[in-house]
Design a protein around this nucleic acid. Structure first.
Lengths: 329, 329
DNA sequence: CCGCTGAATGCTTTCGTTTGCAATCGAAAC
DNA sequence: GTTTCGATTGCAAACGAAAGCATTCAGCGG
């Protein structure tokens, strides 16, 4: 452990600069020199210390991946995509769990202390000023699944449009009394989806009620739907998240309702689980792969031009028809 | 961006060493000096560059978190626990997605290049020599959910005992023809659980058959159970993983079987999802929190004493009785 | 008032690497 | 056999911070 540049230089009988050059892309080294250094390096098992390198190059290839949503299985898919995407581009994710008890300011400071070049915020709900703290510190930050502000780069979907799409679909399937079940009320995703949903539903002659589950979780969805079913108001619900929908579905089944005949349900995300045969949830597909690679692209764009204006990149959604909504009437 | 030690020293009118000392714990600084430096640092927004610091202290506080299981929701729970546990101890996880296409050797090299002090392997199935590559490189490695080898630190459960526990439970519930559904055949978890299960089942007069699903996934479990149900051999199955069990459960329901009356099912892990009302899976609880904090402890132990012998720490499991096994007869 | 002692402080080297600059090399052109 | 010029090479100074060493300081007993 700990074989350095100098060790290799000594062994190969060349200068340290020569060794450095054979390991930095695009440097001027003769083939002979390169061969000589490389055999010495191989024998010693040398590979350059990226942290030391970063001191002079000012490039760490480190990216903060911060999320506070470690309870919604959809984020495992997202982590998978993000880590793969970063790895393909030679970047490394430093994972930060922004759970409730940790001080957000400390997380910002910490990532800066590790000289991350960029930060990907993979969550809709963020502490105030979190994103801008990075921007002000000069680190490329992109907010995935966030609400466009014009202040920072945002990648995601148009949540208002998604809400509209849900309403249009329910109306088209012949439901008239519609319900919206959101996640936490302060989440921008919840607010925007509700706004789009209500407006479109009313415009199409629907009647809409709404309520909020305490979290984007199965249990919250189940509890809330159980509550709703005690005094039924709607024939079909748009749940602002698949895992919420699955909780609601469970509650409906427990209440002896047949889905979709007695109650229609449509979710949002199209997480893998929505396709499971015993769930078979009709839902709005959120193109995670496009969003994630868009987020990484935007981050790299900003590496290249730190002063460019903030950019918003929204991708279209589409309905995935499964078994929780009745067919087009 | 980029305010350094020297900037603060200049502003405060003191030496660079003085600034360094106020930011390193346990250094000799007078209260007056400390105050002076701290106000200057605050005004400039200085905080020490951890990467530069690591060059002299040889401590990066960086830990590799590597997994190849980004499809089983249980790993989100694990990532949650690991990240929180590391953060509490002032350590930072560098996340590595060891997916099939990436070269394992490159991952090892990469983590070494970033001077990680330790590595947590959160997966049961690993490329050959992966763990030992870290050990040989002098980085503290602990294999969570792995099979004890005596060569590296391992934390997890006794998978053979877990298999026995499953068999004993099924027999005690009056099932006699037992089936084992494993994940990938080469996974040590699958092998060990099968070994314990078969031995105990036979010892107790049971008849056992076994087969393997291609992956630890819902779909693999569903497909395999569908196949098994075409020519039924067993009254109850032990599925080596909850998500596999849930797939199997779905297949059973699709085949019109009532669980647990027509078919018994027991899983392993007790992931959150197992408790969902519409799944309600009887399963063997694997104590993730103990395993994860044990893994971190063991890693830190090795920081302190890099030469100590490899250690294995196994935690006990217990049955969580839910709705997929009939009651004790 | 002096000498002593332990705490504070500053100087300088070091960590492992890159990189600007100058010196050297090699081969083509004359 | 010179020149010339671009490609290689080595030297040495950064990068941001820690820490050993020597120096200074303050407070104490005498």
């Amino acid at each position: 452990m700990g074989v350095t540049l100098s060790d290799v230089a000594l062994k190969a009988g060349v200068s340290r600069a020569a060794v450095s050059r054979t390991f930095t892309a695009g440097a001027s080294v003769s083939p002979k020199m390169r061969a000589r250094v490389e055999t010495a390096a191989l024998e010693l098992g040398y590979s350059p210390n990226l942290l030391a390198r970063s001191l002079t190059t000012r490039k760490t290839q480190l990216v903060g991946l911060v999320s506070n949503n470690f309870h919604n299985p959809v984020f495992l898919q997202i982590f998978d995509l993000v880590t793969k995407g970063l790895q393909e581009r030679g970047l490394r994710p430093l994972l930060v769990n922004l759970s409730d008890e940790t001080d957000p300011a400390r997380s910002v400071q910490l990532l800066r202390q590790y000289s991350v070049e960029g930060v990907i915020l993979a969550t809709s709900h963020l502490p105030d000023g979190f994103a801008s703290a990075f921007r002000d510190a000069g680190v490329a930050v992109v907010h995935a699944f966030g609400r466009p502000t014009g202040q920072t780069d945002v990648v995601g979907i148009d949540n208002v449009a998604a809400g509209q799409m849900a309403a249009q679909t329910l109306i088209a399937r012949g439901y008239r009394h519609l319900g919206f079940m959101g996640g936490p009320e302060q989440a921008s995703t919840t607010q925007d989806r509700l706004a789009g949903f209500s407006a479109a539903a009313r415009a199409l002659g629907g009647v809409v009620s709404h309520s909020f589950a305490g979290a984007y979780s199965f249990e919250a969805g189940r509890v809330e739907m159980t509550r709703l079913l005690a005094h039924p108001k709607a024939e079909a619900y748009f749940c602002a998240d698949d895992v919420l929908s699955i909780g609601a579905l469970s509650a409906a089944q427990a209440a002896g309702l047949r889905v979709p005949d007695d109650l229609g349900l449509i979710g949002l995300n199209d997480m893998h689980m929505a396709a499971w045969a015993n769930i078979n949830l009709t839902t709005i597909h959120q193109p995670f792969d496009a969003i994630v690679s868009g987020a990484i692209d935007l981050m790299q764009d900003r590496f290249a031009d730190p002063t460019r204006a903030a950019q918003t990149r929204l991708f279209p959604c589409h309905i995935v028809d499964r078994g929780t909504l009745r067919a087009q009437s």
